Simulated scan of single mutants.
Amino acid sequence: MASHNRFRSTAPRALRDPDALRVRLEAVRTEPAVAPLNDWVEALRGRLGEDESVPWFDPASGGIEARSLLLLEAPGQKSVGAEAALRRTGSGIISADNDDPTAQNCWTLRQEAGLPYELAVHWNIVPWYLGTADRIAAPGRTEIQRAAPFLHEVISMLPALEVVVPMGRKAQAGWAAYQERYAPKVHTLPTWHPSPRVFASRPAARQEILDVLRETAGLLGCA
């Protein structure tokens, strides 16, 4: 756990700082907890013919030691690297420290829930970016089905996994299909997508997500 301390952020959006982002990117292939996952990302890019539209796992997260998985839909623009197709300019990492409001909500809610980042890892039902340079797209059934084997490869690299939190309807649908096919032995705690749009349209969503993350922390013995 000590190795995670050097990445620990004290406020949301830490990766807006170029120096913090540089340190994080330098560790994606060397931090022991995420090196196997990011070796897999590199191989997946080659298999798909994709570039940085498949972001890295976050060295600040629990990586292969994670006991919880916060599972969203697909990478956002702020997760996709500057060298990706369409010249997007995000961090290149799936991280709660990214410089966007959804990541900020994840950071704040996890902090309030008492769920340490080193016990969690963030990922997506579909691991590659969907949409255009101007607008992200939600995954459809075709993308979810195409991505299912890749999600299984990720889950197989998380031997300590106990709790999965699918966030949003698309993530829940993708995870339900995955459960039906692979029957993972984990707790599933579905909840809302942590986007500002959801919070604006459903005032109770924030508290419901917080309750789920607190339940996750309790199952892991953190609360």
Rank of each mutant, 00 (worst) to 15 (best):
R29A: 15
I125W: 00
A74E: 04
P32L: 06
D19R: 09
V154I: 03
M167K: 01
G90L: 00
L130A: 08
L213A: 05
Y129N: 09
F199W: 11
A183N: 03
S195Q: 05
Y117M: 10
P59N: 09
R141H: 10
I125T: 11
A133F: 14
W56G: 06
N124W: 03
A200P: 01
W128L: 05
A85P: 02
R206N: 06
V163P: 00
Q172E: 15
M157S: 10
A84V: 07
T191L: 06
A176T: 08
D134P: 00
H187W: 11
G76L: 07
L161H: 00
L151H: 08
A11W: 03
A177V: 14
A74V: 07
P203F: 13
P32F: 07
N5T: 15
P166Y: 06
L70R: 01
I64G: 00
A133V: 10
I93V: 05
G131K: 12
Q111W: 08
I64R: 01
D211L: 12
P55I: 09
Q111P: 01
A138N: 11
N98C: 08
R87T: 04
S201V: 06
S61Y: 00
S79Q: 13
V54M: 02
A20C: 06
L48A: 08
G92K: 01
I94L: 09
D97W: 05
A27I: 04
T132E: 10
A14P: 00
E26S: 15
V80M: 02
A84F: 03
Q145C: 11
L130G: 06
W128V: 05
Y178N: 12
T102N: 13
L44V: 12
P116D: 09
H122K: 10
P166F: 08
A96V: 09
T89G: 06
Q179G: 04
V165Y: 02
R22A: 15
A20I: 05
G46F: 02
A223G: 14
V165I: 03
Q207S: 09
Q77H: 11
D17H: 11
V163C: 01
A60H: 07
G168W: 10
D100I: 08
A205R: 10
D134M: 11
P116Q: 02
R29N: 15
N105V: 13
G174V: 10
L210C: 10
